[in-house]
């Protein structure tokens, strides 16, 4: 960021705010100004919250979702169906699925999708941990019976899904994936060709 008369501390604040996703120099200035004008009510609680998050937030040891405890609230909830594991790419996908409230099983966060050009091979994802988790569950109270692959409907997402199917094949589990096609409330006129083709091939009888 260009040096100006604002002083090093403000420049540093602007520099780091600009690193946030969705923040450009203008929005960073607006946020910095707001924080500095509301030190007691916003800035100090924000610093405290960030410090707490830095100190306490970690990856759940079972599912690798972000959590404040070694085992997250979902993995530690005995009411959740342990025989169902929903595999997602990122922790944000867990939040999206939990927002809907329709899934009552447990999750596994891969940490991304396979992308060799971005340097994300199978060893960078938590695939081995998933295979081990499933194998370990066989001797437990609630063995895993179905793995739902909730990965993006993109070439990278589905390539990862097929790779997971290859890895899970020896376990003999039922492996399913989320449906592709029309969104709720979607109009045909606004859909792209790929979505329409996927919706057509995944059609199901009504009667």
């Amino acid at each position: 960021m260009r040096a100006n008369s604002q002083g090093t501390e403000i420049e540093q604040l602007l520099y780091w705010l600009c690193k946030m996703p969705g923040f450009g120099p203008r929005s960073a200035k607006r946020i910095a100004l707001f924080l500095l004008q509301n030190r007691g009510t916003v800035l100090e609680p924000l610093i405290q919250a960030m410090e707490n998050a830095r100190a306490k937030v970690q990856n759940c040891q079972a599912c690798f979702a972000l959590s404040t405890a070694p085992i997250c609230s979902i993995c530690g909830d005995s009411r959740r169906d342990g025989s169902l594991i929903c595999v997602v790419a990122e922790s944000s996908d867990v939040w999206s699925l939990e927002r809907g409230g329709s899934f009552k099983g447990r999750y596994h966060v891969l940490g991304g999708t396979l992308a060799a050009l971005a340097g994300r091979g199978p060893d960078k994802l938590t695939i081995a941990a998933l295979v081990k988790r499933i194998a370990d569950s066989a001797s437990g109270l609630q063995p895993v019976q179905e793995v739902i692959l909730a990965l993006s409907a993109t070439v990278e997402g589905q390539s990862t899904a097929h790779y997971l199917v290859d890895c899970l094949r020896p376990s003999g589990l039922l492996v399913t994936r989320l449906a592709h096609g029309l969104p709720m409330g979607g109009e045909l006129d606004y859909l792209d060709d790929g979505t329409l083709a996927a919706a057509l091939s995944a059609r199901k009888p009504l009667a």
Partner: peptide
Amino acid sequence: SPTGLAFLDDS
């Protein structure tokens, strides 16, 4: 043509 998306189910 959405060739990439047309074969998402075919490993």
